[in-house]
Write a protein that binds this DNA or RNA. Structure first.
Length: 256
DNA sequence: ATGGCTCTCGCGGAGAGA
């Protein structure tokens, strides 16, 4: 089973590009973030033609998450409890016995901005919600908007203390892992510097100026089934004249 | 240095992203 996460930066602007990737990589389950589309305007027919069903938690203009699956699935959670004011940022599905959650964590903007403490409390709600659940095989993937360690930022330790790189944010992310989750990419590649996001501006992609902020986390059962994790940087490039998202897709192959 | 792209909303230019 191939599972994936991808912040697409606008569903309607990315549909043709997504079709290229889905047909090429053929994932079985995909967590999507930043749809910027209301739930009722999700183009189900477009994805049905590509062989996917969608569970959607959308929103006008901003945020929005969805899960694509090969067979119709039930959603088991829509929205992070207690955090409805902060947008549509979490959805969970039961995919043939795998509990699959995708999240779009708040950005925070800067350590001085009002959004920053809200980002920290959103993470605390996520930890509380996660620890209240239980399942044999669990995946939590998405755009976490936190750089876990200096290795994950092109600026290394020079970025310490900036938003995404603060001790407070990193400890919130660690708290999640402490609940029994493993960062599958870092598990297989302990030393490798690979990024999942690059700024559109200033040729950041070609200058290798990126961050790793998109993760697939799995519980112990999932971790033991992982064959490979790929940060698909080729799909951060323009394809057939189509603009890419500023995030690359990330996928993992599981022996399921 | 001044946010150097791209998205949405909506029809001009502002706000958000990270």
């Amino acid at each position: 089973m191939r599972i994936a996460t991808w912040n697409i930066n606008g569903l309607r602007a990315r549909m043709e590009f997504m079709a290229l990737w889905l047909n090429d990589r053929k994932p079985d389950v995909v967590g999507l973030q930043e749809l910027k589309t209301p739930t009722e305007e999700f183009p189900h027919d477009f994805f049905t033609d590509l062989g996917y069903h969608a569970l959607v938690h959308g929103q006008k203009s901003w945020n929005g998450v969805a899960i694509l699956t090969r067979s119709p699935c039930e959603s088991v959670q829509i929205g992070l409890p207690g955090e409805d004011d902060w947008g549509s940022r979490l959805i969970t599905a039961d995919v043939g016995g795998l509990e699959f959650t995708t999240v779009y964590c708040p950005n925070g903007k800067s350590v001085e901005h009002d959004d920053y403490p809200n980002k920290l409390s959103w993470y605390e709600s996520l930890c509380a919600h996660w620890s209240s659940g239980d399942h044999t095989k669990r995946v939590l993937c998405g755009d976490f908007n936190i750089v876990p360690e200096a290795l994950d930022s092109w600026r290394g330790e020079k970025a310490d203390g900036d938003v995404f790189h603060t001790v407070a944010e990193r400890s919130r992310f660690q708290n999640l892992l402490t609940l029994g989750l493993t960062d599958l990419h870092r598990h297989l590649q302990p030393e490798e510097q690979v990024f999942s996001w690059w700024d559109y501006r200033g040729g950041a992609f070609h200058r290798k100026q990126g961050l790793r902020i998109d993760f697939i986390l799995g519980n112990d059962s999932v971790r033991d089934l992982v064959d490979d994790v790929v940060i698909d940087r080729d799909y951060r490039k323009k394809k057939d004249g189509l603009t890419a998202s500023d995030h690359a897709p990330v996928y993992a192959d599981l022996r399921i």
